[in-house]
Amino acid sequence: MNNIRFSDESLALVQKMIQRYPEGRQKSALIPMLHVAQAEFDGWLAPEVMDYIASLLNIQPVEVYEVASFYSMFNLKPVGKCVIEVCRTSSCWLLGAEDVIRHLENKLSVKVGGTTTDGMFTLKSVECLGSCGTAPMMQVGADYYENLTLPKVDQLVEKFRHDGKRKCYTDQPENVTI
């Protein structure tokens, strides 16, 4: 546990987060802090990382574990450098999400939930990401990739392989479309 510590930059961000809440309600910063921790410590929350967060907030470790295990965005086991999350619900499903998932499974030689042997990709299927009008879609890191076709998926996978992209809460999303 001693060697787990936020970078100065993350620590400053976390201190700023804690100030958003009234005195005595600092636990409210837990979820945003876990996002920062996950981004900094290899995309997942190891027990010692969660213990470190508990010590920063002065709460019991179990209060962190119970939260981390409740929310689907927190990974409790190691993931690849690039986590591909394909929406599988409703309109995405009506418009071919299964084909996208199957295509990625074949292309990456990995089953949903698994990580490629080179540690590059983790493939997940997730519930509705609010992109139904631009279905099918997937999320990688902070970014949404919409109106997917299989050739488009191929191009994106090559791009991710090249960029070595990983889920990063602290980076600016790249494709903000305004």
């Binding site: 958003r20 309600r25 636990k27 409210s28 910063a29 837990l30 979820i31 945003p32 876990l34 996002h35 907030l57 209060e63 119970e66 939260v67 409740f70 929310y71 689907s72 965005m73 927190f74 997730v126 519930e127 509705c128």
Partner: peptide
């Protein structure tokens, strides 16, 4: 305040729990 993936947090009291740093 950013959540972390839970449909239930759209229910207003679950949302408040989540905002307080809980399940």
């Amino acid at each position: 305040q950013v959540g972390a993936g839970a449909y239930i947090c759209g229910e207003e009291t679950a949302l408040l729990e989540s905002l307080e740093g809980k399940r």
